[in-house]
Design a protein around this nucleic acid. Structure first.
Lengths: 214, 214
DNA sequence: CTCGGCCCTGAGAACGTGCTGAGGACGCCG
DNA sequence: CGGCGTCCTCAGCACGTTCTCAGGGCCGAG
């Protein structure tokens, strides 16, 4: 765990140890980066606001060096950075402070389960390629420019090609939105993606969600 | 589900129904308690802040009456009550708002599993396969596209292969309908399924209901 | 065989979901 | 300050889905 607030770090460490995890804490960005490189960990919990090196830069560096450690990012919700930015630089999941400990635990477990050893540097589905580290998307070798939100949405979909993903799940992971948020925003962004990637890449499963055609 | 915020309740109900759950909503504490006592439910999602009777009191009452329905509690995080309180009164699990929908789903499934024998991820009967997570149905390895309602109906039937299931039961669980609803709608949808899956997969037991041929 | 009740089905109305263009709010940069 | 790009809201429309209804077939009882 990379976290500079001592009290939060200590509380989390205690809680996670009680669940049977082995937890080390680093207090600065550079120390965290080093630990991630050489520590042999299964996952990393990473604050965004860090002395020396921000969480964003840390993940980006890690990914550029071909380290695919699962990363769960924590950020204060004061909007200096956008939520989508976190996923853009290669974090696997994202929580905004203040968060529920139970939720953190559940998401951490999900990350470990997913545990993708040797994730390809570039996600590829059909002639679509997405490079999380470089934040680039190409379609049949032609570059497609996406906004942050569009990129985050496509990123999420490309990690589960062929699966049906509900609007609620997308709202939850791509927008970090509460359940009450109108699902229309998802429809709008699926529309944007379709315009940029081709009409039939994203399938609508009426009453259920969307699916990325394989 | 016992929840007085209408928008949240509606969103959750929609989401859970899409997953194949039959969901009823009560808006007040007393109404919820009554439903828990007599509704024959498999689990309850319970808000803490409720008009008439708090979630804490509701669970305590229920447990005192020897009802052991699994309860998943939701609470706002403004700290008036402590998280531990919820578990103390007899709730089985606990989430603080705002929570992730996916986590709620996972925890709800975990609660239901705890009570019942482990369910396979993919249901299979004859050459019919149904994957609830991917929301996909195949018949002899050919994909069959179903509407939301058709899927819910088949899902329910496939969990009880070989059993005779009455139209009333189907109305209740698949349609969430009141007793006065005309049973004809079930006949119509059984007709749709027969057209898509093959004429003899669904047996009519005259005067009793339907049965999925094994 | 006849009758009554149960079930099936096609037509079409009612409803809801998803798609889209217009445009407002906001932040960034010149 | 004004232009630009992104994010998001809203309302209208299109079309698939859901449901209602009525007519007819089938089955079992007498």
């Amino acid at each position: 765990m990379v976290e500079d607030e001592a009290r939060l770090a200590a509380a989390l460490q205690r809680g996670l140890r009680a669940e049977g995890f082995a937890v080390d804490v680093a207090r600065t960005g550079p120390a965290g980066l080093d630990a991630a490189r050489h520590g042999g960990y299964d996952a990393m919990i990473l604050d965004v606001m860090l002395p020396g090196l921000s969480g964003y830069e840390l993940v980006r560096t890690l990914r550029a060096e071909q380290h695919w450690l699962p990363v769960l990012m924590l950020s204060a919700k004061d909007g200096e950075y956008d939520q989508a930015d976190g996923l853009d630089c290669g974090a696997d999941d994202y929580l905004t402070k203040p968060f529920s400990y139970v939720v953190l635990l559940a998401r951490l477990r999900a990350l470990l389960r997913r545990g993708a050893p040797e994730r390809p540097a570039v996600l590829a589905v059909g002639d679509l390629r997405l490079d999380p580290a470089r934040r680039r998307v190409t379609r049949a070798d032609a570059e497609v420019t996406l906004t942050a939100r569009e990129f985050a949405l496509l990123n999420y979909l490309m990690r589960r090609p062929g699966q049906v993903i509900s609007k609620i799940e997308l709202l939850d992971h791509v927008w970090n939105a509460s359940l009450e948020t109108a699902p229309n925003i998802v429809e709008v962004y699926v529309g944007y993606l379709r315009r940029k990637l081709g009409r039939d890449r994203l399938e609508t499963i009426r009453g259920a969600g969307y699916r990325l055609a394989t």
